[in-house]
Amino acid sequence: MSILKIKHLLGLEGVSAEDITKILETAVSFKQILERPVKKVPTLRGQTVVNLFFENSTRTRISFELAEKRLSADTVNFSASGSSTSKGETLRDTVRNIEAMKIDTVVIRHSSPGSAEYLTKCLDAKIINAGDGSHEHPTQGLLDIFTLREKFGNLKGKKIAIVGDIAYGRVPLSNIYGLQALGAEIMLCGPPTLIPRDIEKIGVKVSYRIEEAIEFADALNVLRIQLERQNSTGLFPTTREYFRFFGITKERLKSKPEIVILHPGPINRGVEIDSEVADGENSVILEQVTNGVAVRMAVLYLLSGGEEVRENQ
């Protein structure tokens, strides 16, 4: 075993099963640290991480910031409002200026797909994608997979259905690539307007009926409808109608008492999921949040790992 093959975490597309497994296994140790009286280790002392959030975020930003602090890194937060981007500065100039202040790692969330990858061309720092538009959100994918592994152990042959807004979300792609690398089977489910055409070509099943997805799945990853990214209206009539056709209710899950329910948050209760299910015993939604910190610690730790110099005794 050596350190990761990837230098940055831009997405889970193309990341090897070996790297993913290494991150998840390291996260197990970090999760344990979070249970101790002193929830902090000195490993990244002296390293500086900048959290660049050009888009709103509660969970991801706090989770990254906690992960950084638990590893003793220095953190700097940046949010687009109140910054020079509103004065017309380009992304490239913003980050080059920040890098000139001597930083080691950049965590970026941006509304444009590919923005994280773009940064790797402007900077020497390690880049971690915290969501780029509707492209990928790799740490969310990893924490979902981590949570599933806690429930199921080996994911080979396990059936996961991703339900809801596939086209405008960034969680689906990261989940699909990560889960496929570990050998899970995936079904996407939602109204046809929210599922990209020809998505079957990347090796997933598609269903437009929630009953079929529930029948198929060992676990459901229920996604929020990304109203803010759907620039045209009319993709589905009303949220009430969406709930009636795709909402996850206790009634619908009757045939599958053991099914595991994930949701990346934020939850719109009564739209994609019923409160009874979100707070019910099949739900691992809050475990996902806890695991998120451990997984992000593992990513930060492994990406800033030492260089191979000499064998130590």
Partner: peptide, 8 residues
């Protein structure tokens, strides 16, 4: 950690 570890 940063200089020496063959396998962190």
């Amino acid at each position: 950690f940063r200089t020496n570890l063959k396998q962190p």
